[in-house]
C-alpha cells in the first residue's frame, strides 16, 4: 500500500472520483497549470480537460457563486478557495445561497458543492493565511463542515463530501499537509460524514479535538500516567454527539482542544451538549484549551497563540485534580 501525505491523498481522491463521475469539476485560483498553491490539484489539468479543471479569475465570491449555478445545473463542483482567510468574500454566497437553496426551493434546487480550503495556522505565513474560522460555517444552517486529521481520513472524507447531496466545507489543516505519511489504499473507500473517531481509547479523561491538534494531543498524552481517550471529531457539522456522550459517560472528565478562538468556538457548543445530555456524569468542570480571542499573531509570536502539549497537559492535570 502506498504511503501518502495529506496533499497526495486528497489529490488521489479527486483523481479517482473525477475519473468515475464525469459531472465532477474542479475550479479555483491557480488550480490548473500551477496545480494549486499547495499542489493539491497537481496533474488534474493534464489528466482531465480544461473544461473540468478551471483556473478562474481572482474572485472568491465569483467562484462560489458560479459553483452554485454549476451545481443546480447538474454538475458537481469542487471549488478551491486558496486560503481559509480569503473565503470571506464568498461567505455571502455560501451562507445566503449555497446553504439555503434546498430550503428556499422546498427541495427543488440543491447544491451538491464541496468547497475545499487550506485551514489553520502553524506555517508561519502572512496575515489571513492562518485562520481558524470553522465556527462561522458550523453556525450556519444547511452546511456540513469537515476537517480531517490524517491522509487516510482526508481521502475517505473527501470522497464522502463529493458524493454528499448538500454543500460541504472541507477544511484541510495546512500545517500537516505534508507532515504525516500514512498508508492510504488505492482502492475506493469512504468515511461517513458525521462520524467521529476514537484515535486512542482511555478511561480517565475524554479529550476532544480535530485537525492538526489531534497529533499534538496524541503527543501531549504520550507519557502521562492518566488514561486519556482522544476523540477526533473529523466532522464538525453535524457533530457525532452520541460518541462524545458515550465517552464522557465513561470518563466523567473532559478537555476540549481547538486552535480557533475560545469564545463560541466548537468547545462552547460541545460543553453545552454535554451539559444537556451528560451533566450527571461530569466529575469536573470541562476544560478548554483553545486559541485566544484575538487576531492570530504574525509568525514571530504565532506560537504564543497555539494550544501546545504543555497547555494540554495542564488542562488534563486540572480536571484530574479537581
Amino acid at each position: 500500500m502506498p504511503k501518502l501525505n495529506m496533499v497526495e491523498a486528497i489529490n488521489l481522491a479527486l483523481k479517482q472520483e473525477m475519473s468515475k463521475d464525469k459531472s465532477i469539476i474542479v475550479l479555483g485560483e491557480d488550480v490548473g497549470i500551477d496545480g494549486g498553491v499547495f499542489r493539491v490539484t497537481e496533474g488534474l489539468l493534464k489528466k482531465f480537460s480544461k473544461s473540468r479543471v478551471i483556473d478562474t479569475p481572482l474572485s472568491e465570491s465569483g467562484i462560489v457563486g458560479v459553483s452554485i449555478g454549476l451545481a443546480i445545473n447538474g454538475l458537481k463542483p469542487v471549488a478551491e478557495i486558496q486560503f481559509e482567510g480569503f473565503m470571506l468574500p464568498a461567505f455571502d454566497q455560501i451562507v445566503t445561497h449555497a446553504a439555503r437553496l434546498r430550503n428556499r426551493s422546498r427541495g427543488r434546487f440543491t447544491v451538491p458543492l464541496v468547497i475545499r480550503s487550506p485551514y489553520g495556522g502553524g506555517i508561519k505565513a502572512l496575515e489571513h493565511h492562518s485562520e481558524a474560522p470553522e465556527t462561522y460555517y458550523v453556525h450556519s444552517p444547511g452546511l456540513k463542515v469537515v476537517i480531517p486529521s490524517t491522509p487516510y481520513d482526508a481521502k475517505g472524507l473527501l470522497i464522502s463530501a463529493i458524493r454528499d447531496p448538500d454543500p460541504v466545507i472541507f477544511f484541510e489543516p495546512k500545517k500537516i499537509y505534508r507532515a504525516i505519511k500514512q498508508e492510504v489504499p488505492e482502492k475506493e473507500y469512504s468515511i461517513e460524514i458525521g462520524k467521529a473517531n476514537i484515535v486512542q481509547e482511555g478511561t480517565d479523561v475524554t479529550l476532544i479535538t480535530y485537525g492538526s491538534l489531534v497529533r499534538t494531543s496524541l503527543r501531549a498524552v504520550e507519557n502521562l500516567k492518566e488514561s486519556v481517550e482522544i476523540i477526533d471529531l473529523r466532522t464538525l457539522s453535524p457533530l457525532d454527539v452520541d460518541l462524545i456522550i458515550n465517552s464522557v459517560s465513561k470518563t466523567g472528565k473532559v478537555v476540549i482542544v481547538h486552535e480557533a478562538p475560545k469564545t463560541l468556538g466548537l468547545s462552547a457548543e460541545i460543553s453545552a451538549l454535554i451539559n444537556e445530555k451528560a451533566l450527571l456524569s461530569l466529575q469536573a468542570p470541562i476544560e478548554r484549551v483553545t486559541g485566544f480571542d484575538i487576531t492570530i499573531p504574525l509568525p514571530k509570536t504565532e506560537h504564543y497563540y497555539f494550544p501546545d502539549e504543555k497547555r494540554i497537559q495542564m488542562a488534563i492535570k486540572k480536571v484530574m485534580e479537581f
Binding site: 485560483e29 491557480d30 497549470i33 500551477d34 483556473d55 478562474t56 479569475p57 481572482l58
Partner: peptide
C-alpha cells in the same frame, strides 16, 4: 500575472 493566472484569463 495573478500568481499563475495570466492577465488574458483574468478579464
Amino acid at each position: 500575472f495573478a500568481i499563475s493566472v495570466p492577465r488574458e484569463n483574468q478579464t
